Amino acid sequence: MNTAVNVIEPLLLNAQVTDDEIIAHLVDGRTISVPLVWSWRLTKATPEQRRHFEIIGDGQGIHWPDLDEDISIEGMLYGSPARRTKVAATRLTEKGAGSSD
């Protein structure tokens, strides 16, 4: 038995960033959101920096040019938070868990 599966790539139509969430409106009508804390760069950014984003490609993700941050729609769907760079993680360890870098 052959089963044909027509997989449609999830694509972004529009997005918004609140103080708590990244909300993505997809072209297929779904709306998904993830906690803002998934991106340590966005968590530390100003509201103006959070609002200044671009849609990547045909809607595969979101790019914040002022922060050099990218989040893919697939990452949002599959639960892949942004990882801290090795330098940022080292600074955090050196300063202690309560400090910010």
Score class of each variant (00 low, 15 high):
Ala82Ile: 11
Val34Ala: 13
Met1Val: 14
Asp58Ala: 11
His63Thr: 03
Phe53His: 10
Gly98Tyr: 02
Gly75Val: 03
Asn6Gly: 01
Gly98Arg: 03
Arg83Met: 14
Trp40Leu: 02
Ser100Asn: 07
Gly98His: 09
Val34Met: 05
Lys86Cys: 01
Thr46Ser: 15
Asp68Ala: 13
Leu12Pro: 08
Asp20Leu: 14
Ala4Cys: 00
Pro35Gly: 12
Ser33Val: 05
Arg50Asp: 02
Thr3Cys: 03
Thr85Met: 05
Thr85Glu: 09
Glu48Asn: 05
Gly96Lys: 05
His63Trp: 14
Arg41Leu: 15
Asp58Asn: 14
Ala4His: 06
Ala97Ile: 13
Ala24Val: 03
Leu26Ile: 07
Glu21Met: 12
Ile55Phe: 11
Pro10Ile: 01
His52Ile: 10
His63Met: 02
Thr31Pro: 00
Gln16Lys: 10
Thr90Ser: 05
Glu48Asp: 10
Asn2Cys: 07
Lys44Thr: 09
Gln49Pro: 11
Leu42Thr: 12
Asn14Tyr: 08
Ser99Arg: 10
Thr3His: 14
Arg84Leu: 14
Asn2Ile: 09
Pro10Arg: 04
Thr46Lys: 09
Arg84Ala: 10
Gln16Asp: 05
His52Gln: 10
Thr18Ala: 03
Gln60Val: 12
Lys86Gln: 06
Leu12Lys: 02
Gln16Ser: 11
Arg51Thr: 08
Asp101Ser: 12
Ile71Trp: 00
Gln60Ser: 12
Val17Gln: 00
Arg30Tyr: 09
Val27His: 02
Gly98Pro: 00
